[in-house]
Nucleic acid binder design. Structure first.
Length: 309
DNA sequence: GCGACAG
DNA sequence: ATCTTGTCGC
């Protein structure tokens, strides 16, 4: 059952004349963190059953009693359980000898459509040896700590079109530096069976131990355990957060990422991001041109004025 | 006033 | 992630 279907199941339970708090719906789904996403979905899809009867926590918008006896499948709790299970399968041993190629995947969005690009660079000279692009509708919203379930379908589709898999794949987001120790890089690594490294631009969990010197790195500790490193590349003050996805030792992950950084972002991710954004732009342009060229279905199109061949 | 959690 | 144009600066 997907996110929207699960949400609908809950919405239908609100009795006539009753209202529900967004946070209560989120908790029924399994995680209060989904509140913002649910509010967004309801705003964008007012046609969903009882969409207008789900209100903010203040309850000011309610014109009747609150309902909160939701029953049924807590989707997010199940996904969290899966993450915890996957976390036990993460390996921090290097699943390779030498790094011949390095991949990077990134996803950009336009409404409910995602655009993914996966690029593979030759490690020796950082030239692109392969790139694949994929676009698909996306149905799972962005919910903090569940990013993997939003992006996995696109990443899987992109990986499937790859002629040859990279030695190691960089993923835009955290690896073990995650509340369930299973960020998107871990899920992708395990499901793909490829060594992966999580590279995030912002922290999610843990605290940085020590100071971050320019060009240096500092351990990020969670529950007394080092699960990743914050590292400052280039001139940037803002650190990058690197952690094991799968089959890569944490220190090795840091070494690999550092070797790939010409700017703040490692080259595979920087290039993937540029290409994904470009793909989205071109698609948008194409759609606009299509609307101009064919404002009506062919059968209803007004008769064109004759113009000499 | 505090906090606002990867993309 | 996305909304957004030109502009100031190294």
């Amino acid at each position: 059952m997907d996110f929207l279907a699960e949400l609908e199941t809950l919405l239908r339970q609100i009795p006539p004349g009753h209202f529900a708090r967004v946070a209560d719906v989120a908790r029924a789904l399994g995680d209060v963190r989904a509140s913002a996403a649910i509010a967004r979905v309801l705003r964008d899809h007012p046609e969903l059953p009882n969409a207008r009867r789900v209100v903010a926590g203040s309850g000011l918008a309610a014109r009747g009693p609150f309902f909160n006896a939701f029953r049924g499948g807590p989707l997010l709790a199940e996904l969290r359980a899966e993450q915890i299970e996957l976390a036990t399968k993460v390996s921090r041993r290097n699943g390779f000898r030498s790094v011949r190629t390095v991949g990077g995947v990134d996803v950009s969005y336009e409404g409910d459509r995602g655009f993914a690009t996966l690029v593979v660079l030759r490690a020796s000279d950082l030239t692109v040896v392969e790139e694949v692009r994929v676009t698909q509708p996306v149905s799972f919203p962005y919910i903090p700590t569940y990013l993997a379930y939003r992006e996995w379908p696109l990443i899987e589709a992109a990986a499937a079109r790859l002629r040859e898999r990279p030695t190691v794949l960089l993923v835009d987001g955290h690896g073990q530096l995650h509340p369930a120790r299973c960020g998107i890089a871990c899920l992708v690594g395990i499901r793909l069976g490829v060594p992966t490294i999580g590279v995030a631009k912002h922290p999610l969990v843990g605290s940085i131990r020590g100071s971050l010197e320019p060009g240096g790195g500092a351990p990020v500790v969670v529950d007394g355990e080092v699960l990743g490193y914050a590292m400052r590349t280039s001139q940037s003050t803002k650190p990058l957060f690197v952690s094991t996805g799968h089959r890569v030792a944490t220190r090795t992950a840091v070494r690999i990422v550092r070797a790939l950084c010409r700017t703040r972002q490692p080259e595979p991710l920087r290039i993937a991001h540029v290409l994904a954004t470009e793909m989205k732009r071109r698609q948008r342009k194409k759609v606009q041109e299509g609307l101009k060229l064919a404002p009506f279905p062919r059968s209803e199109r007004p008769k064109a004025k004759g113009r000499g061949a």
